[in-house]
Design a protein around this nucleic acid. Structure first.
Length: 152
DNA sequence: GCCAACGTTGGC
DNA sequence: GCCAACGTTGGC
């Protein structure tokens, strides 16, 4: 069992959108960063825990809990010229980009970024490191537990 | 809207 | 394979 923090812009998909989605599951399409892709392809397992993080919004922070609900599979949007995620260099016989599905577990209070920074127990989290831009980052069991303690 | 960080691209 | 230019992310 692994744990992850996954960033989503609430304008595109908020924790409420995830809860309201068919099957309470959304395909995590649009990842166009190799490190993040490799996490999905090589390290994610069904049932892994997900901290659902709202980014690029007035109140960035952890907004809920999700879970990995599919293995990694081809992201079809890379072949769609009308998609903002279109990648003209990706070939159907060798797809570059993959994604998993993420399922809803529960909504939490918003654990804001500024509050996260105030807790020494979270100081090691990748999302808090200067210059971090990765949309998917691993979370250690200790970090996961510390977040759960703060959410309860 | 600013800007720091950092990944990607492409010329050489 | 180096590295400057450029684009993107994302908090503020």
């Amino acid at each position: 069992m692994n744990y992850w923090l996954m960033k989503s812009e609430p304008d595109e998909c908020s924790i409420d959108d995830l809860a309201a989605a068919p099957g309470q599951t959304v395909p995590w399409i649009g990842v166009r960063n190799y490190q993040a892709r490799n996490f999905m392809r090589d390290a994610m397992r069904l049932g892994d825990g997900v901290l659902f993080y709202h980014s690029s919004c007035p109140q960035p922070g952890i907004a809920g809990i999700g879970k990995v609900s599919s293995p990694a599979y081809t992201d079809a949007s890379q072949f769609d010229p009308d998609s903002p995620y279109f990648d003209p260099k990706s070939k159907p016989e060798a797809p570059r980009w993959l994604h998993v599905d993420v399922g809803f577990v529960r909504k939490t209070r918003l654990l804001g970024l500024t509050e996260m920074r105030q807790h020494a127990s979270l100081a090691s989290m990748r999302v808090l490191q200067a210059g971090n831009r990765l949309s998917i980052t691993p979370v250690s069991p200790e970090e996961w537990e510390a977040v759960m303690d703060l959410l309860d």
